[in-house]
Each structure stands twice: as C-alpha cells, then as structure tokens.
Amino acid sequence: MTSQAIQTQGLTRRFGATTAVDHLSLTVETGEIFGFLGHNGAGKTTTVRLLNGVLGADGGDIRVLGLDPAADGPKLRARTGVLTETPSLDERLSAVDNLTIYADLYAVPTGEVNGRVNGILETFGLAERGREKVGGYSKGMKQRLALARAFLHQPDLLFLDEPTAGLDPVATQEVHDMILHVSREEGRTVFLCTHNLVEAQRLCHRVAVMEQGQMVAVGTPRELAHTIGADMRFTLEIAPDQVETARAAVIPLAAVSAVETTDAELTLTVNDREAVPDLLAALQAAHVRVYAVIPQQTSLEDIYMALHRRKGQA
C-alpha cells in the first residue's frame, strides 16, 4: 500500500476553449487534511470529478488510493466519499430514506444499515427530524445531512467541496469539528475544496492554491508564508492613552506598510524582519511603554494576496 492517497501527474481537462485543470501535479498523503484553495472557476470541482473517475481527463496520470479512476472507477468510488457542491439530496424523501438508499448503493453490510443510519443522524443532530422530508430542512441541516451521507460508508478518502459555503458561524464550527474528528480520531484522508482561507488555515495540514486550473503554490500554511516572503505581522500591547502617540511614532517608518489600532493594541505589518528593532526603538524614543509583542501568523489571506500581486506584476 502506498502512503499517498492521491497522486497526479500533468492532469489536464479542457471544456472547449477553457482549460479547467491545467497540468496539475499533486500529491496528498494518507491521513492529512489537504486544502484545495482557489477562486470561483479555479478548477476545484473539476479536479474532484477527475479524481473520482466521474469525468474523463484529457491528459495526465492519476492514482487515487492506488487505483486508476478511469479504469477502476467503481472500485475506487466504493472507498471515497464525496460532499458535492450542491447537497444533491432527494428533497421529496426523508433523511432516513436518503441515507438508506445510499447505504445500499455503497454496500454497507445489510445488517448494519439501520444502526449506521440512525447513529449518523444522531451524530449530526438530525435524529429527531430524520423522518421528515428533506425539502423542509434549513440549509444548514441539508448540508449536515449531505455530509452524513458522505461519511456513511466510512470512506478512506473524503472529498469535501466547499462544505461550509452559506452556513452560519455555529453550523460552520460544527462542520469543522466533524472534519477534525474524522481526520484525527478515524485517520481518514480529507481533500477539502474551499475559498475560505480561515477555514483552510484552521483545518489543513497542507494547502494548494489554484488559479485558472494551475497550481500556483503548495505547502503548509507556514511554508507558504516563507516561500512567498509575505509581510510579517505582530501586535503590540500598550497603554490605552498612548495608542495615538505610538501610531504617530511608527507611521513615518518606511518598513511599516499597515497599522491597525484597537483601544490598547497596535497591529503592525512590516515588510522586513530587520524593521522590528528599529520600530521598538522609535517607540521607546516616543516614551511609549510596550507591555507585549505578539507575533501574528501570516494568514493564508496574506499569501493569497501576495500570490495575486506577484501574478499581477508578472
């Protein structure tokens, strides 16, 4: 058994003049949560379809769980679970019916179907309304049910296409907890498509950034920050009555590219590490008392923006 859940080499798919996926070479390790980031139309959904053998590739090699999706589609799909972009639920049927049908389709052992369906409805907080028609569910409930359906046959590899799009913060948090649970407790591999950078940062071990079908960066969020050399951010804790003084003292410094203030904090973005000692010296000269210097991790958002700027310059 290979330790790579997914491996592609030069994977390409065109739709007419559009190249939806353009020579994508990608490796996803078994057990990781892999973030697949990109704007609308970047090629995320198309990639998921190619990886599951439900759409043909125009070129390149694919191995998923050691199988070739084009040749062994059914065998492969028995071991993957997919949360599609739209929940794709039968709204005229109940949650129990929706899940039972898919338990049969994914060959859940016959004797276990009822237990599995009821258990997963319980886990996803839908047990009480499991016999109601799905058409009457809220968006969050539908999303949870679709997620439950993707987990039902305990797949080795989960594809989640924008699992929290359109959900409120509470529902989003619940979905995040579920994803972390199946990853940490059950050791499943997760391929997470999203354009939510905070989500990717919170959940993913590694992320790939897609633009117009091409992968423009890949690595841990920290690695990306380093390779791209994105700006550095940190927060200073100071006395409330000195916030304005501090602000006035740092703004003239060339290395400072942004200043955000709250009632007792100053968050600075600098484009050079060497600027930090100078900055502290300037504050001291202005008699600002600094109680703490808290480094802020470079967010994916910064990486994303940096990539965009680079692309714009090129």
Partner: peptide
Amino acid sequence: ERKTLEALIYTPTT
C-alpha cells in the same frame, strides 16, 4: 433538474 444526479454519479455503480 432537482440536482440529485450528481451524488448518484459519484456512487460505486458502473
């Protein structure tokens, strides 16, 4: 039309 086909296509059926 009801957008239920996609999930069906992803099942391990031939």
